[in-house]
Design a protein around this nucleic acid. Structure first.
Lengths: 153, 153
DNA sequence: CAGCGGTGGTTCAATATTAAACCATTCGGC
DNA sequence: GCCGAATGGTTTAATATTGAACCACCGCTG
Protein backbone atom coordinates (compact mmCIF):
# COMPACT_ATOMS: atom_id res chain seq x y z
CA UNK A 1 0.00 0.00 0.00
CA UNK A 2 1.89 2.99 -1.30
CA UNK A 3 0.44 6.45 -1.59
CA UNK A 4 3.26 8.46 -3.08
CA UNK A 5 4.65 7.97 -6.54
CA UNK A 6 7.91 9.49 -7.67
CA UNK A 7 11.09 8.48 -9.39
CA UNK A 8 12.86 5.29 -8.41
CA UNK A 9 15.46 7.36 -6.61
CA UNK A 10 12.83 9.22 -4.62
CA UNK A 11 10.89 6.13 -3.70
CA UNK A 12 14.03 4.34 -2.61
CA UNK A 13 15.11 7.21 -0.39
CA UNK A 14 11.63 7.71 1.05
CA UNK A 15 11.20 4.03 1.71
CA UNK A 16 14.50 3.75 3.56
CA UNK A 17 13.71 6.89 5.54
CA UNK A 18 10.27 5.73 6.60
CA UNK A 19 11.40 2.24 7.53
CA UNK A 20 14.31 3.62 9.51
CA UNK A 21 12.14 5.97 11.53
CA UNK A 22 9.46 3.41 12.19
CA UNK A 23 11.92 0.78 13.30
CA UNK A 24 13.62 3.22 15.66
CA UNK A 25 10.30 4.37 17.02
CA UNK A 26 8.98 0.86 17.52
CA UNK A 27 12.09 -0.45 19.26
CA UNK A 28 12.45 2.61 21.41
CA UNK A 29 8.89 2.72 22.65
CA UNK A 30 9.13 -0.99 23.44
CA UNK A 31 12.19 -0.34 25.59
CA UNK A 32 10.92 2.82 27.19
CA UNK A 33 7.62 1.30 28.24
CA UNK A 34 9.46 -0.77 30.81
CA UNK A 35 11.51 2.08 32.13
CA UNK A 36 8.50 4.27 32.61
CA UNK A 37 6.92 1.63 34.78
CA UNK A 38 9.85 2.23 37.10
CA UNK A 39 9.08 5.94 37.28
CA UNK A 40 11.90 7.03 34.98
CA UNK A 41 11.01 9.03 31.90
CA UNK A 42 12.99 8.24 28.73
CA UNK A 43 14.89 11.51 28.97
CA UNK A 44 15.66 11.06 32.61
CA UNK A 45 16.98 7.58 31.93
CA UNK A 46 19.07 8.90 29.06
CA UNK A 47 20.72 11.52 31.23
CA UNK A 48 21.31 9.21 34.18
CA UNK A 49 22.69 6.47 31.98
CA UNK A 50 25.13 8.89 30.36
CA UNK A 51 26.29 10.21 33.73
CA UNK A 52 26.59 6.66 35.06
CA UNK A 53 28.74 5.38 32.23
CA UNK A 54 30.70 8.46 31.27
CA UNK A 55 30.92 10.39 34.51
CA UNK A 56 29.98 13.98 35.43
CA UNK A 57 29.25 16.25 32.48
CA UNK A 58 28.21 19.84 32.12
CA UNK A 59 24.82 20.70 30.68
CA UNK A 60 26.07 21.55 27.21
CA UNK A 61 27.97 18.29 26.87
CA UNK A 62 24.89 16.37 27.92
CA UNK A 63 22.80 18.25 25.38
CA UNK A 64 25.22 17.44 22.58
CA UNK A 65 25.50 13.78 23.53
CA UNK A 66 21.76 13.33 23.73
CA UNK A 67 20.96 15.48 20.70
CA UNK A 68 18.74 17.76 22.72
CA UNK A 69 18.68 21.51 23.39
CA UNK A 70 20.24 23.04 26.46
CA UNK A 71 16.88 24.41 27.50
CA UNK A 72 15.53 20.90 27.51
CA UNK A 73 18.40 19.64 29.63
CA UNK A 74 17.81 22.39 32.15
CA UNK A 75 14.34 20.96 32.71
CA UNK A 76 15.24 17.26 32.73
CA UNK A 77 18.21 17.72 35.06
CA UNK A 78 16.01 19.90 37.25
CA UNK A 79 13.55 17.03 37.57
CA UNK A 80 16.34 14.57 38.34
CA UNK A 81 17.70 16.91 40.97
CA UNK A 82 14.30 17.35 42.56
CA UNK A 83 14.05 13.58 42.85
CA UNK A 84 17.52 13.28 44.35
CA UNK A 85 18.95 11.31 41.43
CA UNK A 86 21.49 13.89 40.26
CA UNK A 87 23.19 17.07 41.43
CA UNK A 88 24.26 20.29 39.75
CA UNK A 89 27.34 22.12 40.97
CA UNK A 90 28.81 25.33 39.67
CA UNK A 91 32.39 25.08 38.43
CA UNK A 92 34.81 27.28 40.34
CA UNK A 93 37.23 27.58 37.43
CA UNK A 94 34.65 28.92 35.01
CA UNK A 95 31.49 29.90 36.77
CA UNK A 96 29.40 29.62 33.61
CA UNK A 97 29.58 25.84 33.76
CA UNK A 98 27.35 23.65 35.88
CA UNK A 99 28.70 20.15 36.36
CA UNK A 100 25.97 17.54 36.52
CA UNK A 101 26.69 14.37 38.49
CA UNK A 102 24.72 11.27 39.30
CA UNK A 103 23.92 10.80 42.98
CA UNK A 104 24.42 7.63 44.97
CA UNK A 105 20.69 7.03 44.78
CA UNK A 106 20.78 7.50 41.02
CA UNK A 107 23.76 5.21 40.71
CA UNK A 108 21.98 2.45 42.62
CA UNK A 109 18.91 2.87 40.45
CA UNK A 110 20.82 2.57 37.18
CA UNK A 111 22.93 -0.30 38.50
CA UNK A 112 19.71 -2.11 39.26
CA UNK A 113 17.87 -1.30 36.05
CA UNK A 114 20.56 -1.27 33.38
CA UNK A 115 21.24 -5.02 33.12
CA UNK A 116 17.58 -5.74 32.39
CA UNK A 117 17.56 -2.88 29.95
CA UNK A 118 20.47 -4.39 28.03
CA UNK A 119 18.77 -7.75 27.97
CA UNK A 120 15.67 -6.18 26.53
CA UNK A 121 17.78 -4.57 23.83
CA UNK A 122 19.37 -7.93 23.09
CA UNK A 123 15.89 -9.42 22.91
CA UNK A 124 14.60 -6.78 20.55
CA UNK A 125 17.62 -6.89 18.28
CA UNK A 126 17.44 -10.65 18.12
CA UNK A 127 14.88 -10.06 15.39
CA UNK A 128 18.03 -9.76 13.29
CA UNK A 129 20.94 -12.18 13.01
CA UNK A 130 24.28 -11.05 14.44
CA UNK A 131 25.53 -10.33 10.92
CA UNK A 132 22.43 -8.29 10.18
CA UNK A 133 22.82 -6.34 13.39
CA UNK A 134 26.34 -5.42 12.40
CA UNK A 135 25.25 -4.50 8.93
CA UNK A 136 22.44 -2.31 10.29
CA UNK A 137 24.81 -0.64 12.72
CA UNK A 138 27.30 0.13 9.96
CA UNK A 139 24.68 1.57 7.63
CA UNK A 140 23.00 3.60 10.35
CA UNK A 141 26.35 4.89 11.51
CA UNK A 142 27.35 5.95 8.02
CA UNK A 143 24.05 7.69 7.44
CA UNK A 144 23.99 9.40 10.80
CA UNK A 145 27.51 10.70 10.76
CA UNK A 146 27.30 11.88 7.16
CA UNK A 147 24.09 13.81 7.67
CA UNK A 148 25.33 15.23 10.95
CA UNK A 149 28.60 16.33 9.35
CA UNK A 150 26.77 18.05 6.53
CA UNK A 151 24.68 20.01 8.99
CA UNK A 152 26.97 21.38 11.64
CA UNK A 153 24.84 22.06 14.63
CA UNK B 1 34.97 5.70 23.12
CA UNK B 2 32.90 2.98 24.72
CA UNK B 3 31.68 3.06 28.29
CA UNK B 4 29.78 -0.16 28.64
CA UNK B 5 31.36 -3.58 28.55
CA UNK B 6 29.38 -6.75 28.19
CA UNK B 7 29.36 -9.90 26.15
CA UNK B 8 29.89 -9.75 22.39
CA UNK B 9 26.19 -10.40 21.91
CA UNK B 10 25.23 -7.55 24.21
CA UNK B 11 27.66 -5.10 22.69
CA UNK B 12 26.53 -5.96 19.19
CA UNK B 13 22.88 -5.45 20.04
CA UNK B 14 23.55 -2.26 21.99
CA UNK B 15 25.70 -0.85 19.24
CA UNK B 16 23.11 -1.51 16.56
CA UNK B 17 20.38 -0.05 18.75
CA UNK B 18 22.29 3.14 19.54
CA UNK B 19 23.38 3.70 15.95
CA UNK B 20 19.85 3.11 14.71
CA UNK B 21 18.34 5.63 17.10
CA UNK B 22 20.96 8.26 16.49
CA UNK B 23 20.72 7.98 12.74
CA UNK B 24 16.94 8.27 12.87
CA UNK B 25 17.15 11.21 15.23
CA UNK B 26 19.77 13.02 13.17
CA UNK B 27 17.99 12.57 9.85
CA UNK B 28 14.64 13.45 11.29
CA UNK B 29 15.69 16.62 13.01
CA UNK B 30 17.47 17.69 9.84
CA UNK B 31 14.24 17.28 7.89
CA UNK B 32 11.97 18.76 10.52
CA UNK B 33 14.02 21.90 10.93
CA UNK B 34 12.92 23.03 7.48
CA UNK B 35 9.29 22.23 8.06
CA UNK B 36 9.18 24.14 11.31
CA UNK B 37 10.45 27.22 9.54
CA UNK B 38 7.20 27.02 7.58
CA UNK B 39 5.15 27.02 10.77
CA UNK B 40 4.33 23.31 10.69
CA UNK B 41 5.30 21.19 13.68
CA UNK B 42 6.58 17.68 12.94
CA UNK B 43 3.38 16.13 14.25
CA UNK B 44 1.18 18.46 12.31
CA UNK B 45 3.09 17.69 9.14
CA UNK B 46 2.81 13.98 9.83
CA UNK B 47 -0.94 14.15 10.18
CA UNK B 48 -1.48 16.40 7.18
CA UNK B 49 0.80 14.33 5.01
CA UNK B 50 -1.09 11.15 5.93
CA UNK B 51 -4.45 12.76 5.20
CA UNK B 52 -3.11 14.17 1.94
CA UNK B 53 -1.80 10.88 0.62
CA UNK B 54 -4.23 8.40 2.12
CA UNK B 55 -7.44 10.39 2.44
CA UNK B 56 -9.72 11.08 5.41
CA UNK B 57 -9.11 8.94 8.46
CA UNK B 58 -10.63 8.70 11.89
CA UNK B 59 -8.59 9.61 14.94
CA UNK B 60 -7.79 6.08 15.95
CA UNK B 61 -6.51 5.14 12.51
CA UNK B 62 -4.29 8.20 12.50
CA UNK B 63 -2.96 7.28 15.91
CA UNK B 64 -2.09 3.76 14.79
CA UNK B 65 -0.45 4.90 11.57
CA UNK B 66 1.66 7.51 13.31
CA UNK B 67 2.45 5.36 16.35
CA UNK B 68 0.99 7.92 18.73
CA UNK B 69 -1.73 7.81 21.37
CA UNK B 70 -5.26 8.89 20.68
CA UNK B 71 -4.97 11.59 23.31
CA UNK B 72 -2.06 13.05 21.41
CA UNK B 73 -3.96 13.06 18.15
CA UNK B 74 -6.85 14.87 19.77
CA UNK B 75 -4.46 17.72 20.51
CA UNK B 76 -2.60 17.78 17.19
CA UNK B 77 -5.76 17.60 15.12
CA UNK B 78 -7.24 20.29 17.34
CA UNK B 79 -4.34 22.56 16.48
CA UNK B 80 -4.67 21.79 12.78
CA UNK B 81 -8.37 22.52 12.94
CA UNK B 82 -7.79 25.80 14.72
CA UNK B 83 -5.44 26.82 11.93
CA UNK B 84 -7.90 25.82 9.24
CA UNK B 85 -5.73 23.03 7.85
CA UNK B 86 -8.01 20.11 8.71
CA UNK B 87 -11.59 19.41 9.77
CA UNK B 88 -13.20 16.93 12.09
CA UNK B 89 -16.70 15.63 11.32
CA UNK B 90 -18.73 13.17 13.29
CA UNK B 91 -19.75 10.04 11.43
CA UNK B 92 -23.50 9.63 11.10
CA UNK B 93 -23.36 5.84 10.86
CA UNK B 94 -21.45 5.39 14.10
CA UNK B 95 -21.39 8.57 16.10
CA UNK B 96 -18.35 7.49 18.10
CA UNK B 97 -16.10 8.13 15.09
CA UNK B 98 -14.74 11.49 14.07
CA UNK B 99 -13.52 11.57 10.50
CA UNK B 100 -10.52 13.86 10.05
CA UNK B 101 -10.02 15.42 6.62
CA UNK B 102 -7.49 17.78 5.16
CA UNK B 103 -8.88 21.16 4.12
CA UNK B 104 -8.27 22.89 0.82
CA UNK B 105 -5.84 25.19 2.58
CA UNK B 106 -4.03 22.21 4.04
CA UNK B 107 -3.95 20.47 0.69
CA UNK B 108 -2.38 23.51 -0.94
CA UNK B 109 0.20 23.73 1.80
CA UNK B 110 1.26 20.10 1.50
CA UNK B 111 1.24 20.25 -2.30
CA UNK B 112 3.62 23.16 -2.04
CA UNK B 113 5.90 21.75 0.63
CA UNK B 114 6.02 18.03 -0.06
CA UNK B 115 8.19 18.04 -3.21
CA UNK B 116 10.96 19.93 -1.40
CA UNK B 117 10.56 17.59 1.53
CA UNK B 118 11.10 14.56 -0.69
CA UNK B 119 14.15 16.17 -2.24
CA UNK B 120 15.60 16.76 1.17
CA UNK B 121 15.03 13.13 2.04
CA UNK B 122 16.76 12.13 -1.18
CA UNK B 123 19.61 14.46 -0.26
CA UNK B 124 19.95 13.05 3.23
CA UNK B 125 19.77 9.44 2.11
CA UNK B 126 22.34 10.07 -0.59
CA UNK B 127 24.85 9.53 2.18
CA UNK B 128 24.24 5.89 1.26
CA UNK B 129 24.43 4.26 -2.16
CA UNK B 130 21.15 3.03 -3.66
CA UNK B 131 22.07 -0.54 -2.73
CA UNK B 132 22.83 0.52 0.82
CA UNK B 133 19.53 2.36 1.07
CA UNK B 134 17.69 -0.77 0.04
CA UNK B 135 19.69 -2.84 2.46
CA UNK B 136 18.97 -0.43 5.30
CA UNK B 137 15.28 -0.36 4.43
CA UNK B 138 15.10 -4.16 4.45
CA UNK B 139 16.89 -4.49 7.79
CA UNK B 140 14.88 -1.74 9.43
CA UNK B 141 11.68 -3.19 8.10
CA UNK B 142 12.50 -6.65 9.42
CA UNK B 143 13.44 -5.28 12.82
CA UNK B 144 10.45 -2.98 13.10
CA UNK B 145 7.83 -5.48 12.05
CA UNK B 146 9.25 -8.26 14.20
CA UNK B 147 9.40 -6.17 17.35
CA UNK B 148 5.95 -4.71 16.68
CA UNK B 149 4.49 -8.17 16.13
CA UNK B 150 5.99 -9.42 19.38
CA UNK B 151 4.41 -6.56 21.29
CA UNK B 152 0.82 -6.23 20.17
CA UNK B 153 -0.25 -2.73 20.95
C1' DC C 1 -35.96 -2.00 26.08
C1' DA C 2 -32.76 -1.90 30.09
C1' DG C 3 -28.44 -2.73 31.35
C1' DC C 4 -23.60 -3.70 30.27
C1' DG C 5 -19.33 -4.38 28.23
C1' DG C 6 -16.53 -2.69 24.56
C1' DT C 7 -14.76 0.80 21.52
C1' DG C 8 -13.63 5.68 20.13
C1' DG C 9 -12.45 10.23 21.83
C1' DT C 10 -11.53 13.64 25.20
C1' DT C 11 -9.62 15.49 29.39
C1' DC C 12 -6.15 15.88 32.87
C1' DA C 13 -1.68 16.09 35.09
C1' DA C 14 2.91 15.59 34.41
C1' DT C 15 6.95 15.68 31.61
C1' DA C 16 9.34 16.83 27.39
C1' DT C 17 10.76 19.64 23.62
C1' DT C 18 12.09 23.52 20.84
C1' DA C 19 13.25 28.27 19.39
C1' DA C 20 13.95 32.68 20.94
C1' DA C 21 14.80 36.01 24.28
C1' DC C 22 17.39 36.70 28.05
C1' DC C 23 21.02 36.62 32.03
C1' DA C 24 25.75 35.52 33.71
C1' DT C 25 30.39 34.98 33.05
C1' DT C 26 34.65 34.90 30.62
C1' DC C 27 38.03 36.60 27.52
C1' DG C 28 40.31 39.41 24.07
C1' DG C 29 41.57 43.86 22.53
C1' DC C 30 42.35 48.37 23.56
C1' DG D 1 40.89 47.93 33.95
C1' DC D 2 36.73 48.49 30.58
C1' DC D 3 33.90 47.06 26.66
C1' DG D 4 32.09 44.02 23.39
C1' DA D 5 31.78 39.49 21.52
C1' DA D 6 31.33 34.84 22.55
C1' DT D 7 29.90 31.04 25.47
C1' DG D 8 26.99 28.47 28.94
C1' DG D 9 22.50 28.25 31.17
C1' DT D 10 17.92 29.67 32.24
C1' DT D 11 13.35 31.31 31.15
C1' DT D 12 9.27 31.68 28.43
C1' DA D 13 5.58 30.45 25.31
C1' DA D 14 3.91 27.14 22.49
C1' DT D 15 3.33 22.43 21.09
C1' DA D 16 3.80 17.55 21.93
C1' DT D 17 3.44 13.30 24.43
C1' DT D 18 1.89 9.78 27.50
C1' DG D 19 -1.03 7.04 30.76
C1' DA D 20 -5.06 7.13 33.32
C1' DA D 21 -9.48 8.58 34.30
C1' DC D 22 -13.41 9.71 32.12
C1' DC D 23 -17.51 10.42 28.80
C1' DA D 24 -20.28 9.05 24.59
C1' DC D 25 -22.00 5.79 21.79
C1' DC D 26 -22.71 1.16 19.97
C1' DG D 27 -24.32 -3.61 20.07
C1' DC D 28 -25.69 -7.51 22.56
C1' DT D 29 -28.10 -10.19 25.76
C1' DG D 30 -31.70 -11.09 28.69
Amino acid sequence: MKHFHGTAKQERALDAYVKLLRAADTVDSFLMSRLESLGLSPSQFGVLEALYHIGPLCLGELARKLLKTSGNLTMVVGNLERRGLATRTRQAADRRFYLVSISEKGRKLIAQVFPQHVERIVGAMSALTPAEQESLAALARKLGTTVAARNPK
